[in-house]
Design a protein around this nucleic acid. Structure first.
Lengths: 307, 307
DNA sequence: GAAATTCATAACCCCTGATTATCACTAACC
DNA sequence: GGTTAGTGATAATCAGGGGTTATGAATTTC
């Protein structure tokens, strides 16, 4: 590839102007400079591109063919040029990872918030569990991740966004007698209860076990559900209890008849939802913009459960 | 447009290799040269394209966007490069003009000849009368023209290709008594005959008038037909006589029942078919190759009428 | 024939893009 | 923790690419 974009620009200008002098003016260079570059291009391409008359310049058949190709190159280069001029307004294509116990409840609001905000981001979403997301983040496959903190990796930058408290979820039959004294409901009181949890690998499962002071080998733990929606339906039917994050609470309560939710006494068990990125991803304005949208949407959702 | 193709090549190489050193090797330059160019490109585009880690290079969201555009530019440039490497085998796109009294009869053979010869030409055909073709030739809209010589322009290069003699065409009723003595049939003998001719502007019309010694204002001249095919059918039906060039003779005789053709005595009236180009179109090998194909096809057609 | 137009060529020079050498930083290894 | 290896950035230097002004050569116009 022994031609330059400048040469192709000059070539196109001569083809359009049919005059070396006028083409040089259009390109803001002297006529001899342009003449030398056209000649160099002709040598590179192995033949005359122009038929030179005293008062006119005509394309040769070869020149006509080359002009088609040259215009494709220049067109593509113009599009890059235009993108560079426009990109200060955003237009980034981001890859964002998000865990399954957050994605269904947070994403609709976040995507709507991104669309209506002045943060113009083209966001591609990858949903996976925390450990997979962290691997993708390290490999540069995604640019940031929405997870429960701490992520467990000291190589990442973590920005806490909002607190997502856990509620107790079960059937009316199981929970109706437990809400007469709300100040008495604590997670450790569930040590003898049968817990329905997500299958292993979801950090929400580890959080529930820790909060309830239970061990994964206990005969009271059932870990096999693959989503909070499934858990909601199981406990609503009377198959044990589970911990339901606020983010999911209203959505699942609306979708599952018979599901009852109780709030624990203070200090309420909770997870912190945050945005993580690589430490080397510094000084990028998209991160802060995205964080702000997620924080606002998340806080709106959890606040609605506290009224 | 302040970036160069070299910069885009380097950028693409780093994106693929994820390592400045290896990318520099791929591009056959030193690592610092490549580093400086990437940095310049980043300044031109207004942001970091890469996230630099100690042992890995990751694309930033901006870098990912730019890479899409850059690959379009490089792809188009590769296609031009490839064309330049391939074009020594021909692949010219030529624009050739040809007059209507030649085109229908000569073109099928010429295009077939071009396809089977080693002269690889992409030929675009423009059919128009001589004066229009000459204007297009002067303006560079076509590269050569197939016309009857002399073209009338001393600014063009004319290459005679073959002689196309005129035959007398009419109905059997009109011509059956005229072929008893073939040595007696001369064009001037048609001075009192009614001639059917093409409408004004076709040089064949002027040639016919001159050959027959008639004047366009004579009451015996009917000029209104738009093609030789039309003329053939009119005269076959008994509406006067016309001059039919050899090129068209066999084709029209096959197509038009009742059409009779007679050959004049020597010297037979004729036109010379030739190829014209601009004098400034010098040293192009396509011209000679094209001329040879046309000459061969034309001679084959007229020779077939002389057996 | 003189003047105007127009592309090509020559002399000159600045800037771009390359090289080698080295620095700064991080990660891996002992 | 110290040493070594890996890797991109920076500095000094230089060749040549690409630009300028001036001029030559050819054609056209008046």
């Amino acid at each position: 590839m022994n031609f330059t974009l400048r040469q192709l620009q000059y070539f196109n200008a001569v083809a359009e102007q049919r005059n070396f002098g006028r083409a040089a003016q259009v390109c803001n260079v002297s006529q001899p400079a342009l003449s030398v570059q056209i000649k160099a291009l002709e040598e590179t391409l192995g033949g005359s591109l122009f038929e030179r008359q005293a008062r006119d310049i005509l394309l040769t058949p070869l020149g006509r063919d080359v002009l088609d190709y040259a215009r494709q190159v220049l067109g593509a280069a113009d599009r890059l040029d235009q993108f560079a001029k426009d990109h200060s307004g955003g237009h980034r294509s981001l890859s964002i990872g998000i865990i399954p116990t957050i994605a269904p409840y947070l994403l609709p609001g976040v995507l709507a918030g991104l669309r209506s905000s002045d943060v113009s981001l083209r966001v591609q979403i990858r949903e996976a569990r925390t450990d997979r997301l962290l691997a993708m983040l390290r490999a540069g496959e995604i640019d940031a991740g929405v997870v429960a903190l701490p992520s467990g990796s000291n190589e990442l930058f973590e920005l806490p966004l909002f607190e997502d408290r856990f509620l107790l979820a079960g059937s009316h039959a199981r929970l109706d007698g437990m809400d007469s004294d709300p100040d008495a409901l604590r997670p450790v009181d569930l040590q003898t209860a049968q817990l329905m949890l997500l299958d292993d690998g979801h950090c929400l499962t580890d959080q529930a076990l820790e909060v309830c002071g239970q061990d994964r080998s206990s005969g009271l733990i059932n870990m096999g559900a693959s989503s909070l929606a499934t858990l909601s339906r199981l406990v609503a039917e009377g198959f044990g209890l589970t911990l339901m994050p606020e983010l999911a609470a209203q959505s699942e309560a609306h979708a599952v008849p018979g599901l009852k939710l109780l709030r624990f006494t203070s200090p309420q068990p909770a997870r912190t939802v945050g945005l993580v990125r690589r430490l080397s991803t510094g000084g990028e304005d998209w991160f802060d913009g995205l964080a702000e949208v997620i924080r606002r949407v998340g806080n709106d959702i959890v606040s609605a459960t506290r009224t």
